[in-house]
Every structure is written in structure tokens, then in C-alpha cells.
């Protein structure tokens, strides 16, 4: 194949291979979605509620997806466009891909992860390593998902809409609170001690973004609960995120 390595990595056949896998995963998602929708109707769920879940999830996902697109652009300088496109559309995670690609480049004998140093063999080695390192979630899911859920939920076959009661729902909410607390704590820790313990010289932009987003969310919640503007609920998270990101831009300038 002729051309520079980056031209080869962004050539038609590579696009075709990556695009076919993305298409497959897209079809899998569509199949799961249609099945879930039909099952929801079969068990008597309200169509409006299911539609609301779909609309809210779609509006929720646009902004993070644009952020992920930036990851594709960042990696395209060293790995071409199709492979990062595949990795970040399927299985990959924004924070993971750049780290593991750099580690894989080192293992493949490159001085750094860059287009100028890339070779065909180094690329295929890096690509294999990127796939192998993050495959465990799928493997564990394949092997243990059913048994794990069965054990956690007893029979795991509760009737539709049945109020489970018990501790399960509270535990899941608590786990999510724990997750958010870990991240917010890390932003605060980074600001206070990120550049020397108690130096207060770390970046405060993530904290400001989180605070602005929380403030916007508070406004949306007030409008929804006190002014009856329930329709805002579908877009409140996405709009709050925009407020947080706008705050980050204001500080960045």
C-alpha cells in the first residue's frame, strides 16, 4: 500500500474494517432497544414513560459524545482516523484510550506515540494491545452476568413495576453518590494539593465547572418543581452541563 503511514491508516480498507464493526455494534444496540421496547409494552409499561427515558438519554448523550469525538481527533494524529473512531465508538473509554495507546507504543518500541514514529507493525501491535487490555468487561459479562445478577436479586425475575422495596434501590443510589463523591473529592484534592500539599495551586476549573453545573441544575429543578415546567426535566442535565462547560471556557479565557 502506497502513501505515508498515516495515509495508509486512514485508507478505504481500514475504514471499511472499522466501519463494519461499528455497524455491527449499532445493529446490536438497535436490536436490544427494540426488544426492550416490545417487552415494556408486553408487561404493561406506559409508552410515554419509555419514550421519556429514550428522549432524556438521547439529549443526555450528545455533549459527552462531542467530548469523545475530541478523543478521536487527538488520537488521529498518531493512529489515523478509523481506529480511534472504532475504539471510542465501541468498548473504549475516553480516559483509557490515550493512556493505553501510549503504554502500547512504548511496548511496541516507539519512542513516543506519534505519527512520525509510527510503523505498520507498531500500529497493529498497539491496536492489538488496546483491544486486549480492555476486553475483560465483556469477558466477565459473558461468563458471570447471569449468575451474578441471579445471586444479587434472588430469582431476579420480579414482576413489572413491582416495588422491590428492601435495600437494593437505596444501595444503588448510595453507590452512585459514592461514585460522584469520589470524583468531586478528587477535583478538590487536585486543586488543594495537586501541585504540592496544601499549595492551592492546582486547577480549579473542574470544581468551577461542577459548581456552575450544579447551580444550573438547581435552577432547572426549581422551575420544574415550583413553576410546573416539567418538560424541562428531559433536558435539564444536558443544559446544566452546558452551563458548567461555559463556566470552564470563561475561566479558561
Amino acid at each position: 500500500m502506497k502513501g505515508t503511514i498515516l495515509e495508509q491508516l486512514s485508507s478505504g480498507p481500514v475504514y471499511l474494517i472499522c466501519g463494519a464493526i461499528i455497524l455491527f455494534v449499532g445493529v446490536v444496540c438497535a436490536v436490544f432497544m427494540v426488544r426492550a421496547w416490545k417487552a415494556g409494552i408486553a408487561i404493561g409499561m406506559d409508552r410515554a414513560r419509555m419514550k421519556r427515558a429514550v428522549t432524556a438519554s438521547a439529549s443526555f448523550s450528545v455533549l459527552p459524545s462531542v467530548g469523545i469525538l475530541l478523543g478521536v481527533i487527538a488520537l488521529s494524529g498518531s493512529l489515523g482516523v478509523p481506529w480511534p473512531w472504532l475504539r471510542l465508538s465501541v468498548i473504549g473509554a475516553l480516559h483509557y484510550e490515550t493512556q493505553v495507546a501510549a503504554a502500547a507504543a512504548e511496548a511496541a518500541g516507539l519512542p513516543e506515540l506519534s505519527g512520525s514514529a509510527m510503523t505498520a507493525q507498531a500500529f497493529s501491535t498497539i491496536a492489538l494491545l488496546m483491544s486486549a487490555c480492555i476486553m475483560w468487561g465483556m469477558i466477565l459479562s459473558t461468563l458471570f452476568n447471569r449468575r451474578y445478577l441471579h445471586r444479587l436479586h434472588g430469582q431476579g425475575d420480579r414482576k413489572a413495576g413491582e416495588k422491590k422495596g428492601g435495600f437494593g434501590d437505596a444501595a444503588m443510589s448510595a453507590m452512585f453518590i459514592g461514585m460522584v463523591s469520589a470524583y468531586l473529592g478528587s477535583y478538590l484534592g487536585d486543586f488543594v494539593s495537586g501541585k504540592g500539599r496544601f499549595a492551592f495551586r492546582g486547577s480549579w476549573t473542574p470544581l468551577a465547572a461542577a459548581a456552575a453545573s450544579a447551580l444550573a441544575m438547581a435552577c432547572f429543578t426549581w422551575l420544574s418543581e415550583k413553576k410546573g415546567m416539567k418538560w424541562l426535566d428531559n433536558f435539564s442535565i444536558a443544559a446544566s452541563m452546558l452551563a458548567g462547560m461555559a463556566a470552564a471556557v470563561a475561566i479558561g479565557r
Binding site: G67, L184, A209, A210, A212, I237
Partner: peptide, 12 residues
């Protein structure tokens, strides 16, 4: 700062 913005809103 997409993730901090996300956790700010969800955190609230």
C-alpha cells in the same frame, strides 16, 4: 471539563 460538569449536575 465534560465529566466535572456532568457530575456537578448529577451530584446536585
Amino acid at each position: 471539563n465534560v465529566v466535572p460538569a456532568l457530575f456537578g449536575a448529577m451530584g446536585y
